[in-house]
Simulated scan of single mutants.
Amino acid sequence: MSISPELLSSLSTIEEPATGRALGELGASFTLQSGVLTAYLGCFNRDWQGPLTEQIQQAGNLLGIAIDRVEIESSAPKYVESESNGLANVSAIIAVASGKGGVGKSATAANLALALAFDGARVGLVDADIYGPSVPIMLGAEGKTPASDDGKKMNPVQAHGIYCNSLGFIIDSDKAAVWRGPMASGALQQLLNDTIWPELDYLVVDMPPGTGDIQLTLAQKVPVSTALVVTTPQNLALSDARRGVDMFNQVSIPVCGVVENMSYYTCDACGHQNAIFGESGGDALAAETGVPVLGRLPLDPNIRADADAGNPTVIKSPDSDVANRYIAIARKVSAFLWSRFQASQSAVPIIEIE
Rank of each mutant, 00 (worst) to 15 (best):
P17V: 08
G24W: 05
I65A: 02
P298N: 02
M247Y: 09
V204R: 01
S252D: 15
G50L: 14
G99L: 03
I3S: 08
S84E: 15
S317N: 15
M138H: 00
V36P: 07
L294N: 00
S9W: 09
R122T: 14
G120M: 12
A110C: 08
E352N: 02
S10L: 11
L41Q: 13
N111V: 09
D47L: 11
L337K: 03
V348C: 06
T226A: 11
G212L: 12
K100M: 13
Q273V: 03
V222K: 10
H160D: 15
E288V: 10
F277I: 09
L216S: 01
L294P: 11
W338M: 13
G50N: 15
L188Q: 09
V293T: 00
R21C: 11
C164A: 14
G35V: 04
R180T: 10
S34M: 05
L32Y: 07
V80Y: 10
M207R: 02
T289H: 14
A187D: 04
Y202H: 00
G210H: 12
V314I: 15
R296W: 05
H160K: 03
D194M: 15
L7Y: 08
G27I: 06
G132Y: 05
M1N: 15
E25P: 03
Y163K: 07
Q58V: 06
E279L: 12
N89Y: 07
S263Y: 04
L238K: 02
E54C: 01
S334Y: 01
G186M: 09
T231I: 13
L299A: 10
A286L: 00
D321I: 10
A286W: 00
G310N: 03
T211H: 13
A39I: 02
A59E: 01
A128W: 09
I329T: 02
P318S: 01
G151V: 07
G132W: 00
N235I: 15
G257K: 05
I350T: 13
A113G: 00
R340F: 15
D213L: 10
L216E: 01
A107F: 06
A113I: 01
E354I: 05
L200P: 04
I276S: 11
E354K: 04
P254R: 03
A237R: 05
T38K: 10
Q215Y: 13
S2A: 09
S12P: 11
D47P: 08
I3A: 07
T231A: 14
G257Q: 07
G101E: 07
D213R: 06
P198G: 00
Q55Y: 06
A286E: 03
I327K: 02
L218Q: 05
L37P: 05
P223F: 11
F336K: 00
P156S: 13
N85P: 04
I3N: 04
S320M: 13
P318G: 01
A284N: 08
K175E: 13
D194T: 06
Q33H: 14
Q158M: 12
G257I: 03
G181A: 12
A237P: 00
A128S: 04
D201Y: 01
A66Y: 04
S185D: 05
G161H: 04
C267N: 12
E25I: 06
C164E: 08
D194I: 01
L63V: 11
S12H: 03
T38M: 14
A187R: 06
